[in-house]
Simulated assay, not measured.
Amino acid sequence: MSMERVPMTIEGFKSLETELHRLKAEERPRIIQAIAEARAHGDLSENAEYHAAKEAQGFNEARVAELEDKINRAEVVDTSKLSGTSIKFGATVHLEDEDTGEKVKYKIVGDLEADVKAGKISISSPIARALIGKGQGDTAEVTTPKGARSYEVLKIEWK
């Protein structure tokens, strides 16, 4: 069985590693200590602290496993070494909504690190798919839940 590789920026990869380290080095020992303290209270069948700590342990271990899987499947792309005149993974694009004149800036990143509020859109999002291959001055037609939108590509950056 082959493992599907997932494109990811260096920043996204480091963010996953940081969270994984925190869960293993800080949360895991804290939860183990909470379980030990709850066990000391005696009868485990009606011990709410014990059950809460065990539940927290389950959530923590599930997130650790999820992060380890994401890290193992990551295909890290150094976007600072990318260049070109057309939009592709890793590009930061400056757009103008042709209907409203609103200007936005997005970086096209992997699915696992997308965060629209932080200006990071997934490579598989409708807007990114519409932008791939476009160049400065081109117009991208995007179908959104609110209807069709047209964006002009003002600038493409590689950071």
Rank of each mutant, 00 (worst) to 15 (best):
V109E: 00
M1N: 12
I108T: 07
S124V: 05
D43Q: 06
L20Q: 02
N72K: 13
V77M: 10
S86D: 14
A91T: 08
E113H: 06
I121M: 10
S2M: 07
E66C: 05
V153T: 01
G135H: 07
A140S: 06
L44V: 05
E66R: 06
F59K: 14
K14I: 06
E102P: 00
E157I: 04
A36C: 00
S45M: 09
Y106M: 03
G12E: 10
K70P: 02
V109Y: 06
H41V: 11
K159V: 13
G110L: 02
V104Y: 00
R5P: 01
I121F: 01
G84L: 14
M8F: 03
A38G: 08
L112F: 10
A25V: 08
E37A: 12
K81I: 13
S83T: 10
M3G: 10
A38F: 05
E102Q: 13
V6Y: 03
L20D: 06
E37P: 00
T18G: 12
L154I: 11
V109M: 11
F13T: 04
I10D: 11
D99G: 06
F13W: 03
E66N: 10
E11Q: 14
A91R: 05
Q57E: 15
A74W: 03
E17P: 01
A52N: 15
A62I: 06
E19K: 05
A34S: 14
R73T: 10
T139Q: 09
K54C: 03
V109P: 06
D43W: 06
K146S: 08
F13C: 04
N47V: 12
G147V: 03
A56L: 13
A56Y: 03
D99V: 04
T143S: 09
K155E: 13
T85V: 09
T139C: 07
I87V: 12
N60F: 01
A34R: 11
T139E: 05
K120D: 00
R22Q: 04
A56F: 03
A118G: 03
G137S: 07
M1F: 14
I127P: 00
A91C: 15
K117V: 12
K14F: 04
S122D: 08
L23V: 03
L20Y: 00
H51I: 07
A38T: 04
Q33V: 08
A38N: 05
D43E: 12
D97V: 01
I108K: 06
G58T: 11
H21G: 09
P126I: 07
S150H: 15
G101Y: 02
V116I: 15
K105G: 07
P145V: 01
E157L: 15
G90E: 02
G90S: 13
K24Y: 02
A56P: 02
D43P: 01
H51S: 07
K105D: 03
D99R: 06
S150V: 02
R22G: 01
H21M: 08
T9P: 01
R5A: 14
I121E: 04
G12D: 06
A52D: 15
H41M: 11
D115I: 09
R28N: 08
A148H: 08
E113V: 04
G12Q: 03
E17L: 13
A34Q: 10
R22S: 09
G110W: 02
K88Q: 13
K54S: 10
L112R: 06
E49M: 07
T18E: 13
K14W: 10
E96T: 14
F13H: 10
D43I: 00
L131A: 05
V76L: 13
M1A: 12
G110H: 02
T144M: 01
K117T: 12
P29T: 02
V77L: 09
E113P: 04
I132T: 12
